[in-house]
């Protein structure tokens, strides 16, 4: 047998096979989204509506509490909440990905990465529903649309490509160590407060450098700043690209060695 290297390891092959089936993953992600709202009248529109209600309530409450200008605060909060939802549900739902799909994994020969991929695509579908709320807020409060707004597209790409490796690596460890699911579930609410969701890093006078040490800050800002018509600082891109490269390298290394074990773990 040929010596398996990093680039032709079983993990890489699995990822390639999964990407060939991206249509299946997309279809399943969409049918999962529909299944979740199966018996409701509004269906997946609840995603949009739920965000709208949250933004309206929190926007009013926090702008009163923090005594800040609503026209700048509410758009920033809306964008922050939308991105946070994606991050939080990725962190909490990733760990049981393989375990929940165990009856598929143990019965059909399918590439493993298909399942995390499906989860990420579902997050993207949610994001597409939620972003409507931001557009409405942006129109109502006249958020400036500049040429920097276009940077939203690479921003979203960086966010989701990073989420993909995060989802995969958490899913692998979550299948082996069942505690990870609960650990993350208890950490995520805490992360909400140490990540700049309600506030912007620039609001903090002294501890702004500390907030930039939180990797989630970069993932939030890389999308939020351009949404608000401002280019994020260069180090946001540096951090996102750095995380992307290092994250994928580590994930693939783990996946290469562990991918054959997953069927036994679930």
């Amino acid at each position: 047998m040929a010596k398996t290297s990093f680039l032709n390891g079983p993990g890489i092959k699995d990822i390639v096979e999964s990407l060939k089936r991206i249509r299946i993953a997309l279809y399943l992600a969409w049918s999962d989204t529909k299944a979740r709202y199966k018996r409701s009248v509004l269906g997946p529109l609840w995603l949009t509506l739920g965000t709208a209600v949250g933004v309206a309530g929190l926007g009013w409450l926090w702008s009163e509490l923090l005594d800040v200008d609503r026209t700048t605060f509410i758009p920033s909060l809306t964008a922050g909440l939308i991105i946070w939802q994606i991050l939080a549900s990725s962190l909490t739902e990733s760990a049981p990905t393989f375990v929940r799909q165990s009856n598929v994994i143990r019965n059909l020969k399918l590439p493993y990465f298909l399942h995390p991929l499906q989860l990420v695509l579902r997050q993207f579908i949610n994001f597409a529903h939620n972003i409507v709320v931001f557009v409405v807020v942006a129109i109502l409060l006249q958020v400036p649309v500049t040429k920097e707004t276009l940077m939203v597209i690479p921003g979203i790409a960086l966010l989701f490509l990073n989420l993909t490796w995060i989802t995969l690596i958490i899913a692998i460890f979550g299948a082996r160590f069942r505690d990870i699911e609960y650990l993350l579930a208890s950490l995520v609410p805490l992360l909400f407060f140490v990540s700049p969701v309600l506030y912007r890093p620039s609001y903090l006078k002294i501890s702004a450098t500390i907030i930039w040490l939180n990797p989630l800050t970069h993932l939030i800002e890389v999308v939020r700043s351009p949404l608000l018509g401002v280019l994020p600082p260069w180090y946001v891109y540096a951090a996102c690209i750095g995380m992307l490269v290092v994250g994928w390298a580590v994930t693939i290394a783990v996946f290469n060695t562990r991918c054959h074990r997953i069927a036994y773990w679930v």
Binding site: S31, A35, R36, K38, N103, R106, N107, L108
Partner: peptide, 16 residues
């Protein structure tokens, strides 16, 4: 090409 018939209910989503 290979097909398997192992466990009943594999891959079904009860809500659909």
């Amino acid at each position: 090409s290979l097909a398997t018939v192992f466990e009943i209910g594999a891959g079904m989503d009860a809500e659909l």
